[in-house]
Design a protein around this nucleic acid. Structure first.
Length: 636
RNA sequence: GCUGACGUAGCUCAGUAGGUAGAGCAACGCCAUGGUAAGGCGUAGGUCGUGAGUUCAAAUCUCAUCGUUAGCUCCA
């Protein structure tokens, strides 16, 4: 007999030589049904793992994230098996589980088309119906290489060669199908019930753009059909609130082939953008920022000083003016440095917070463009903060506070990532160490949880990134705080210290929205086009029932306008039903229908987008209500 | 940039054994003056992304190019 310490701390004695599956069955029939893998002394293993000694055992089920991964990864194997059955000669690369699903990368002469997905799904179902059981075997390196060479699995050869010496080389076999895999896998395939292949895409082998492009099939899988349906429904919902679709429908912005990646903002989108800017100025003014504007086009020598001319060349739009090289700014910082140098600075001026809503242009790869989320011209809500080294921590805490305030206003949750020195970087080891330590300490002293992102910093310094979570759970990188140990040196920035000597200031770059254009896109999707009142392009939409109601409606309209409310009057000769339908599609917060009743009683009947019919009320009441919502930046 | 798909009226889309283009909505005109998600009738609107090629004939086939798109790479 051996003793197993289970998840709940209890100890269970079982016969030596039992499998984990046997133990699960012993515990309960239900557990046996839901079990997918085991964790023995911290190592994830198959259910068929044989227990030989006293261990800590945790049985993973479909309800554990890790168990779900096993389930999805096994489903990926089934997909690979189906593809190889249907398209013989297909070589397998890798097929991991990912959030909500899995993918597998294939190398095959056959070019996948969407219709293939149905066929592959059918074949997968057929395979599952055979109820094959996973068979695990381990080979030594030599045999493993021999084996994968025999089955003509080039990619696996490379994987094996890259695995560290001493690593166990395990394979899984389902019927005729074999794949190199660390495992674990489901014991039987019958547990796979709800899955769907979603899309075909290209992906570089090992994520390296210099290597071969493979064909990737993305899929999703869940233990229960209802969960799959729910997930597919969520995808549909996400599609419905796609900012590119809503941006067109709500006439917010437009993208044209005459300017790929250069968005056109239409009048209504411009209101949203301008309201965000107004809000931003208000927040920053209160937080002690001043604002500047630096030129769009600056001379080459500046970009050489900043290092961009060499480090950022492929992303910069350059031009010749009077035989001299110029570049359209891809960042605001160099201009900001020049602003600093317009005066002799004193330590008494610090921290000096200088904001700039700077429009920057970057030549992004054509394939990277995506609506407003990824563009080639965007407005950064930038600021450069100049300070003493001793002020770093407190100042970062203050910046974090401002960014938090901004996100709270829109109801966003977020998480923080700290990125450290990348391969391509400028500066000495000592400078980087100091910079990284400063950011880290600031976060820790602010008691903020963060993830570490090694090697993901900017070439001039480490950074803290803020990733927003929108209301359907997607994340977007928006805010960032970057400590810059390079530009102050390159621009030879100085200040006069208490001792009367020149010193070098510390510089922080930071953005809260990140890109106002992207932020607008995120807001469109977050609110599904239903902007809170303060941001709505039209706050009150008025509809006349018949022509005779125009005068009263027009008089009301003027009253609203005078009160600073954005109002639109639809007095077209169309049916009321039709005008109401259009107004609702516009998603304005308030809609008023003006007919005989209202004219007679000199009132209005109000319909709220978010709360339905509000019935009759006085104009003053509605004005007060709308104004309060604008004041509160109230979000539903 | 790379791999695949797509590009037809302002919008959403139909139109392949190749035979010089269709619908709905929108726009415009007329009629209906209508009460919380589409009233009726009519008019106009397209060198089928662009450029070459094949063909008696190309929206349809081929090539190139531009754009969009799912991803990869990169990134605010």
């Amino acid at each position: 007999m051996i003793n197993l310490t289970l998840k709940d701390g209890s100890v269970r004695s079982v016969e030596k030589g039992k499998t984990i599956y046997d133990v699960a069955k012993d515990i309960s029939g239900r557990l046996a049904k839901e079990a997918v893998a085991g964790v023995v002394n911290g190592k994830t293993v198959d259910l068929s793992y044989i227990l030989e000694e006293d261990v800590a055992l945790n049985i993973l089920t479909l309800n554990d994230d890790e168990g779900l991964d096993v389930f999805r990864h096994t489903t990926a194997h089934v997909m690979a098996m189906a593809v190889q059955n249907l398209f013989p000669g297909t070589k397998l690369a890798i097929g991991p589980s990912i959030e909500n699903g899995f993918y597998y990368d294939f190398d095959t002469k056959h070019v996948f088309v969407p219709e293939d997905l149905d066929q592959i799904e059918k074949e997968m179902k057929r395979i599952i119906s055979e109820d094959l059981h996973a068979e695990r075997f381990v080979l030594n390196r030599e045999d493993a290489l021999k084996f994968v060479n025999e089955i003509d699995a080039d990619y696996k050869v490379e994987l094996i060669n890259d695995l560290p010496e001493g690593e166990e080389l395990s394979f899984y076999r389902h019927g005729k199908f074999v794949d190199l895999c660390a495992g674990p896998h489901l014991y039987g395939l019958k547990q796979i019930k709800a899955f769907k292949l979603l899309s075909i895409a290209g992906a570089y082998w090992r994520g390296d753009s210099d290597r071969k492009m493979l064909q990737r099939i993305y899929a999703t899988a869940f233990p229960k059909a209802s969960q799959l349906e729910e997930h597919l429904h969520r995808l549909e919902e996400a599609k419905k609130r796609d900012h590119r679709k809503l941006g067109k429908e709500l006439k917010l912005f437009s993208l044209m082939e005459q300017g790929p990646g250069f968005p056109f903002f239409l009048p209504k989108g411009m209101i949203v953008k301008n309201k965000l800017i107004e809000y931003w100025r208000d927040v920053h003014e209160k937080a002690g920022y001043v604002e500047v504007e630096t030129p769009q086009i600056l001379n080459r020598s500046l970009w050489e000083t900043s290092g961009h001319w060499f480090h950022y060349a492929e992303n910069m739009y350059t031009l010749k003016i009077d035989d001299e090289d110029y570049a359209i700014k891809p960042m605001n910082c160099p201009g900001g440095m020049l602003v600093y140098k317009t005066e002799l600075r004193s330590y008494r001026d610090f921290p000096m917070r200088v904001g700039e809503l700077g429009k920057v242009h970057r030549h992004e790869l054509s394939g990277a463009l995506h609506g407003l989320m990824r563009v080639r011209a965007f407005t950064q809500d930038d600021a450069h903060i100049f300070m003493l080294p001793s002020q770093i921590k407190d100042e970062i805490k203050e910046v974090v506070r401002v960014i938090d305030e901004v996100y709270q206003t829109f109801g966003f949750k977020y998480h923080i990532e700290l990125s450290t020195r990348p391969e391509k970087s400028m500066g000495s080891d000592a400078e980087w160490e100091l910079a990284e330590a400063s950011l880290q300490q600031a976060l820790e002293e602010s008691n903020l949880a963060y993830r570490l992102n090694p090697g993901d910093g900017a070439f001039y310094g480490p950074k803290i990134d803020f990733h927003l979570e929108d209301c359907i759970g997607r994340t977007w990188q928006c805010g960032t705080i970057q400590l810059d140990m390079q530009l102050p040196q390159r621009f030879e920035l100085t200040y006069i210290g208490e001792d009367g000597e020149k010193h070098r200031p510390v510089v922080i770059h930071r953005v809260a929205f990140g890109s106002i254009e992207r932020f607008v896109g995120i807001l469109i999707e977050h609110f599904a086009g239903k902007f809170p009142t303060w941001l709505s392009p039209v706050q009150v939409k008025m509809i006349t029932v018949a022509d005779r109601h125009f005068d009263y409606a027009n008089q009301l309209k003027k009253q609203f306008e005078k009160a600073g409310i954005r109002v639109e009057l639809d007095a077209r000769h169309e049916s009321v039903g039709y005008k109401i339908r259009e107004a609702r599609l516009e998603r304005n917060p308030y809609m008023l229908v003006i007919g005989d009743n209202e004219v007679e009683k000199q009132t209005i009947s109000v319909r709220s987008r978010d709360h339905g019919e509000l019935g009759e009320m006085s104009v003053e009441d509605l004005l007060a209500k709308v104004n309060k919502e604008i004041e509160d930046k109230f979000t539903v």
